[in-house]
């Protein structure tokens, strides 16, 4: 199962590292990353493989939320199917 992590907020040092760290600790593989910085706003989208995750989806979300709180960003994780069904025919 693949999920999409989005990180939106003010750009600061180490956001990518902290999110990647949370993923790696949970055995969540990062498949693809795109990021853009518009002025000082940071938007990152990660496609991740969570089938082999060593923690539940809820726990992963909680961990990512903590990273979000620590970095002042808003982090979401959602099932990839949502986006596929809404934006692809």
């Amino acid at each position: 199962m693949k999920a999409i992590i989005t990180v939106i907020g003010k750009d600061t040092v180490g956001i990518l590292a902290k999110v990647s760290d949370a993923c790696s600790k949970a055995d969540v593989n990062i498949v693809e990353v795109t990021q853009s910085v518009l002025q000082d706003m940071f938007a990152m989208v990660m496609l991740v493989e969570i089938s082999k995750s060593n923690i539940g989806f809820e726990q992963l979300r909680e961990n990512l939320n903590q990273v979000g709180d620590a970095t002042g960003t808003k982090i979401h994780i959602m099932h990839e199917d949502i986006f596929n069904s809404m934006h692809k025919i």
């Binding site: 853009s36 986006f83 934006h87």
Partner: peptide
Amino acid sequence: MLETKDILETIN
């Protein structure tokens, strides 16, 4: 991969 703007639209 999905487009960033589509993903952000859904989240919004």
